[in-house]
Amino acid sequence: MEEKYKKMFSRVKASPEKIQEVIAMTESRKPRRIVRNLLVTAAIMALAVLTAMGANAASGGELFTYVVSCTFNGQDSETVEYHLDSGDVVKGGLGSYVVIEGEDGKAVITYTDGDGNEVSNSIDAFSFEAKTAKAVTE
């Protein structure tokens, strides 16, 4: 069975167009600034969650793109772009970080660690200063 199984699955392949699509997405993307601290990003996004949730409620659940820039330690800045879908799930630019509202109303960030495991942390205890925040209807 082992040999037949291997032979059979070797025929099952992803569409080369879909793989090429992903490669094209990354090639057309400008190199991103390295985030010095994941929690800083998380904190930025926590602010974005709160801002976006309010705006989304006001818009009647319309899909928005939000861009939040933040100054950290007076020099580093990072722009986080994400989509707000249903009012409770927010994704980072390419979907690496997901911020959701926890059961207790706190923001919870979920990300993938070096072993590919999903890690969730509550991020209510971080402070930051947001420079700009704007919402753009898609």
């Binding site: 569409s15 879909k18 997405m25 990354t26 630019g93 979907g95 993938t112 072993d115």
Partner: peptide, 30 residues
């Protein structure tokens, strides 16, 4: 196909220093 694209994009954004090709493969599978 959607999952494949999501997973590959996550790899592109991943900041982990992978030890080896096999580490990348296991990360992708996981």
């Amino acid at each position: 196909e959607d999952i494949m694209q999501t997973v590959l994009l996550k790899l592109y954004r991943e900041k982990t220093e992978f030890d080896s090709e096999e580490h990348v493969k296991r990360w992708l599978i996981r």
